[in-house]
Design a protein around this nucleic acid. Structure first.
Lengths: 262, 262
DNA sequence: GTATGTTGTTCGGCATGGCCGAACGCTGTC
DNA sequence: GACAGCGTTCGGCCATGCCGAACAACATAC
């Protein structure tokens, strides 16, 4: 056995999940042989797993090339994740009001591994053409959403997330763990995170964490747009205030079902 | 064994997939016990499967209620399905031009079971607020996309899809298999399917199938909007022509890589 | 307060069911 | 026409997933 598959996990299911992720990563469709050697599993075994996944329409086989790709049932499951997402559904009204208040696009995200997953996105309220970012995955260290969440993490998780790689996306990306640690402290005190062209040149974001009744972060909400417009002297403070207000309201909303513990 | 699990399938993976689908169906989160009796699997077995899926972040457990729901990795996989979708990516430019030409919303869908999955959606080009329908699933018999695809199916599949249930969604939904069969014949001849308030009162759609080089349908593209505006005497024919043109172009686009077989 | 019903979780042994090596049919290429 | 690559099938060994039963934690009932 090459990968000893952590105790307590069901080997075949674990392998099936790894197949799905491999198919999701590669842009081109993958064949049985390529999957087998990439995951270090016998070819026949991969075939059996794929056939089972195919019956469930989680993967499908291209009739032309006989190679495999993700299937339509995957889209339904991904959509179901969003539909059942409590933070997402609660954020609808808050995000709408925030977008109208500041006249910019609003994004809501959760931390997933070392990335922020966008679960809700409200377009800037002018009529311009914009692409929907729901489902997108952004490195945590290069967006305000991610930094806002990280600043609220308990010390162990914060240390572990700071330990990992922080690739430079633009000249302004914060890539040094010590610098980032200080930035997170400042964000924690101020209650608002700012990202200034750290992911895409010209784009900025102002965000605040959403916490549950224990104070644990469950996600973040933020305003995104052109840096020059978002961070202009005159508007910066007003936007930060609006974002923090909305994040507080949403946090209260999320924790409302249980009484806070001391 | 209650469900003998078709020969050749891997039992545990099949069960894991059924768990995921059960979680996606139920709006509320499900517990181990409920899943076990719903799927007729031993409780301990369900627990093992869930733990494996949880390690892969395909499901997550609510810390409060200890119940399970779909996990964030699911969203990434669903998104990856869209990214790898050939029809979808090729349809972008066609759908845009169609939306601008007719001034209405455009949808692209594929057949999945007895439903049409929306894989691309262009908003009506006025500035109004519209909800994004990508990922939505619509009964095939109640939308023009579905009828356009069904009309191009080979006889066996067409018969089997006509055999299933066709629930009435509005007073105008076609619920009778014989009537639908004649409607499909007419659509096949004309090359365009029309749906007039058969899914939602007031809403209509005009669509045409997209076929590969064998003539097999791979999906459909259509224009959707208010019935009175879409089906007005003056515009109906023009819209039908535009839709058919675009569908033809897309079909050529999709089949371009291989030479047509006689 | 105890009693009783849940829930999710753990354990260990039986035998089932998944795994792998090898062989097959097929499609393209040199 | 031999070859190399692919996806697929087969059969037998034994690892591994399955299940019944016991467990702990919680909620409820009285």
């Amino acid at each position: 056995m090459t990968t000893p598959a952590r105790r307590g996990t069901i080997q075949s299911v674990d392998r099936a999940a790894r197949i799905l992720k491999a198919l999701s990563a590669g842009t081109a469709h993958l064949g049985v042989t390529e999957l087998a050697q990439r995951l270090h599993i016998a070819k026949a075994t991969v075939h059996g797993l794929l056939r089972t996944l195919e019956r469930q329409e989680l993967v499908e086989q291209d009739p032309e090339s006989a190679k495999y790709r993700l299937g339509p049932a995957m889209l339904l499951l991904g959509n179901a994740y969003l539909d059942n997402h409590e933070l997402r559904s609660r954020s609808f009204i808050w995000a709408d009001s925030l977008a109208n208040r500041v006249g910019e696009a609003v994004r809501v995200g959760v931390l997933h591994g070392r990335s922020v997953l966008i679960v809700h996105h409200v377009f800037r309220p002018d009529g311009s053409v914009q692409i929907l970012e729901v489902g997108a995955s952004i490195p945590w260290h290069a967006c305000a959403l991610g930094k806002a969440i990280a600043a609220q993490l308990e010390p162990d998780r914060r240390r572990s997330i700071l330990a990992g790689p922080m690739p430079r996306l633009t000249g302004r990306t914060i890539a040094d763990p010590h610098e980032m640690s200080e930035v997170l402290d400042a964000i924690g005190e101020r209650g608002v995170a700012v990202e200034d062209q750290e992911a895409i040149v010209g784009e900025a974001e102002v965000a605040a964490a959403i916490v549950d009744h224990h104070g644990h972060p469950v996600g973040a909400i933020g305003v995104a747009g052109p840096a020059e417009r978002l961070l202009a002297e005159a508007r910066a403070e007003a936007i930060a205030l609006a974002v923090r207000d909305v994040a507080r309201g949403l946090s209260r909303d999320m924790g409302a079902r249980r009484i806070a513990h001391p």
